[in-house]
Design a protein around this nucleic acid. Structure first.
Lengths: 127, 127
DNA sequence: TATTTGTTACTACACCTGTAGGAGGAAGTA
DNA sequence: TACTTCCTCCTACAGGTGTAGTAACAAATA
């Protein structure tokens, strides 16, 4: 699979990697809020599995620890996520947006910007 | 949990129930496209589990089979879904919409309608 | 060098989900 | 009634994920 689906924990780990670019297991673990911080080995196991799936890779060894880097982009992962949930909405984005609006997750500003983006895209496609 | 998370298969089953309101296991199974139709007992097991989780319930027995009905609304389930993925976007709806637009899942019409919806909501809140 | 501390690599386990087989019972049919 | 068909209920199992312990080793320190 080109883009394997990421679980919640995997996504959180990727988030740290995307922010910091390159991290050790320890750094990833400590990026979790102290209250809900999984055990070191929990992160380790998960990162190893992610490595096996090709979504992270080791870039080098520093001292006695390894440094990992993301192997897929945040955008790609997010897009994958959205494609997945779109399946639950019959592939149509409109109901998704409706829910976002109903739950107050989109401002008028957001929508106006979106409209701009759409218009520019349409223009590009025509030219 | 008030609203348990639905898996893909569970959502497909709910879809049949939401459309037909009340269905037997057989009806749910036959609603799947013939090519990718799970075994009868697969649907059955999953429906039983959903019953245990309180997302469907038996409404009556007809002949020797049971009839099931949804115990949660489509809107509630979809909202739950969206809340989940929003967590992957830092709780902000804007990047979600951006992805929808980039992948051509939203038309200018959709966005305009959304804008209308937003304006009317804002008005309501003010009055 | 001996001790402490931090990593790695391996192992384990429980829960969820998709998948389905089989025994037994109920309902319709010859 | 005897047979066939369909459904229920129980059981099983594999793969994925979250969770973490432990043995062994490497690095830093006393």
């Amino acid at each position: 699979m080109a883009l394997p689906k990421l679980s919640k924990l995997e996504f959180q780990i990727m988030d740290t990697l995307w922010n910091g670019s390159e991290c050790s297991i320890r750094e990833i673990q400590e990026a979790f809020p102290a209250r809900k911080r999984p055990a070191y080995t929990t992160i380790q196991t998960t990162v190893y599995r992610m490595e096996a799936k090709g979504i992270v890779h080791r870039v080098r060894k520093v001292g006695n620890f390894h440094v990992f880097a993301p192997a897929i982009s945040r955008e790609a992962a997010q897009r994958r996520l959205i494609d997945d949930i779109l399946a639950f909405f019959g592939g149509r984005g409109q109901p998704v947006m409706a829910h976002l609006i109903e739950t107050g997750k989109l401002s008028l500003e957001d929508v106006k910007q979106a409209e701009q983006l759409l218009r520019s895209q349409t223009k590009e496609r025509q030219s």
